[in-house]
Simulated assay, not measured.
Amino acid sequence: MNDLESRIRTSFDRQSMMRTLGAVLAQVEPGRITITAPILPTVRQQHGAGHAGLAFSIGDSAAGYAALTLMPEDAEVMTVEMKINLMSPATGDRLLAQGRVIRPGRRVMVVAADVWAETGDRRKHVAMLQGTMIPV
């Protein structure tokens, strides 16, 4: 594990929300992050699909950590704003969020994330997020 991945994983491990959701930091690359989370019975909405809050939580974190990979070592990151488009019910075994940096900047970074629901080898695009992050 390189220094960048170690720094990102250490920060991610401090997020109690991600632990609560069962989320896992699956992949770390400069400007790109993948997070997965099971669609547990405790995170479903009234129709049985994964709640939009789950998709938003892991999508926001994937986008934020993608931004953090391009920031100085002593920086942390916070979301300034985030928009989500929910495109399909999140039905399946787990969600996978892939965050990426659209435009890096010193003060504000534009980021995005795509969220898929997966069952076995089937994948369905369920949400898109776009927002801005700020170093703190």
Rank of each mutant, 00 (worst) to 15 (best):
H125D: 10
P38N: 13
R100V: 02
S11V: 08
H125R: 13
S6N: 09
P30G: 09
L21Y: 15
V126I: 15
R94E: 14
R44M: 14
R32Q: 15
I134L: 12
Q46S: 10
M87C: 00
G131W: 15
T20I: 03
H47R: 15
A37M: 10
E76Y: 06
R103D: 06
R7V: 03
I35A: 12
Q15V: 04
Q46W: 14
V115Y: 09
V28L: 10
E29V: 08
W116R: 04
V43S: 11
E81S: 05
G59V: 07
T132F: 11
D13V: 08
A113M: 03
L70D: 01
R107D: 14
D60K: 00
V77Y: 03
R106A: 04
T132N: 14
G59P: 12
T69A: 00
V80I: 11
E29C: 11
R94K: 15
S57N: 07
S11F: 05
R14H: 13
V28N: 13
S61L: 02
T20R: 01
P72G: 09
S88H: 15
G105D: 11
A112D: 15
V24I: 09
K83M: 08
E81F: 00
D121Y: 11
N2H: 07
L54W: 14
N85M: 03
D13C: 02
L86R: 01
L129P: 00
L70S: 01
I102G: 00
L95Q: 13
R94Y: 14
P104F: 03
V115S: 05
D74E: 14
R19H: 12
M18W: 15
L4N: 03
A117I: 12
S88T: 11
R7C: 03
A75R: 09
L4C: 03
D60N: 05
D3Q: 04
T10K: 01
L4S: 05
G99C: 04
W116D: 09
V110Q: 09
A117P: 07
M109K: 07
A26L: 07
D3H: 03
M87R: 06
T91H: 05
R14P: 04
M87P: 00
I39F: 11
A66T: 01
K83Q: 11
G50P: 05
G59L: 11
Q15T: 05
H125K: 14
S61I: 01
H51M: 04
P89Q: 04
M17S: 05
E5G: 04
R32L: 14
D93V: 03
V115E: 07
A23Q: 07
D121M: 10
D114M: 09
P135G: 03
L40D: 15
